[in-house]
Design a protein around this nucleic acid. Structure first.
Lengths: 199, 199
DNA sequence: CCAATTCTGTATTGATTGCTACAGATATGG
DNA sequence: CCATATCTGTAGCAATCAATACAGAATTGG
């Protein structure tokens, strides 16, 4: 997993992979079929490792907490953790462009899965009036994923946890509060500024 | 340029490149030295094509316009334009992870150049009281680049211009207005919500 | 108009790619 | 304890990689 993470799908040679796994090529092919099969298994493993975070995100009490837990979780695992895993996100940096278009598509599907989970959560929030009536769950989810992926790119380039958390504070200032949780409404009644300290 | 864009640095073979350029390998090596030399020339060309946008961004009247013009510019060129160029951003998707670490670093430097231009602009804005006193120019620039890069990833995966512009509206709701341009201040005096329609 | 020079295109270079055949080692089962 | 089956490791497969040697064509200079 870390080999694909660090070198990308095409940059990871079988020699790199077998050496890191401590096995020989025939064993790899017996277990995974081919290089792409191994990569897809890696994606599943990666998702499984992120599932705990996504569970916490979806289980949060209100949409703003969803947003904060999601972004802070992404920042914490994507900022350099001291070499245990490479900085950034495997789903972002292992193959956005490849000679084999199946790889970018597989990555996009895995990212879209996260975005869908967020969207469905926000749809439930909207029905329960935890979001303003004109809020768009799909757009909110898309916004969060965009910020998260952008942070991953910065993390891969060496950004620190602190820098990412600063970005998060700005990103959350955009977050719409429902009239229910924020009774003091403004002129258009849809968005309110964040309070000075909300954590 | 489009070959590197579509297939990434390592996915672009010399056969792909020479065929697209209409030349033979010896001509390529006489002109650019090697594959990496060609790639670096491509990055310069790409930057040159984006310079007009960055000039408009930096010349905008106020920091919020800087943010809007930047994000809308990125959305417009990164959303699919009908095949003329690939969707997304070359600086993001051509090589975040490679077997040769020089490539991700070269890309990161080119992206950092844009972020620095934004930061310096915001530093001037802050001195001129066009930003709140507690605003952090570096963080604001980092935030914009994160959103922009995140949008590029979504564009590469097929997001439409409309979807990206919806994301931008949320991203700009986070934007701090100075007390000077937004006299109606709130409890912490640093951030104000966006108006319902501001374009 | 011809000789010198630059350029272009073909055909390879050695190295590395993803992948596999085959043989030796280990483990299993009766 | 031995025959069988499974696994591991070496060696090498064809194909492709980035990069060139070399020969013929085009162009230039005088």
């Amino acid at each position: 997993m870390t080999v694909f993470w660090r070198k990308g799908y095409e940059g990871a040679s079988l020699a790199d992979l077998t050496e890191a796994m401590g096995i020989n090529p025939p064993s790899l092919y017996a277990a995974f079929g081919n290089k792409e099969g191994l990569f897809r298994a890696v994606l599943e493993r990666y998702d499984a490792r992120r599932q705990a975070l996504m569970d916490r995100v979806i289980a949060a009490s209100d949409p703003r907490s969803v947003a904060r837990i999601f972004l802070e979780g992404v920042a914490d695992f994507s900022a350099d953790t001291g070499g245990r895993t490479p900085p950034g996100c495997l789903l972002v940096q292992s193959g956005l462009s490849c000679s084999d278009a199946d790889i970018p598509q597989a990555l996009a599907e895995h990212r879209a899965e996260k975005e869908r989970a967020l969207r469905e959560r926000f749809e439930r929030d909207k029905k329960a009036d935890r979001l303003p009536k004109d809020a768009n769950p799909a757009t909110l989810a898309s916004y969060l994923v965009a910020v998260a992926n952008g942070m991953c790119i910065q993390a891969a380039a060496g950004a620190t946890r602190k820098q990412l958390h600063d970005v998060i504070e700005i990103a959350l200032a955009a977050w719409p509060l429902s009239a229910k949780t924020e009774p003091r409404s403004d002129d258009d009644g849809t968005r309110a500024m964040r309070t000075a300290v909300d954590k």
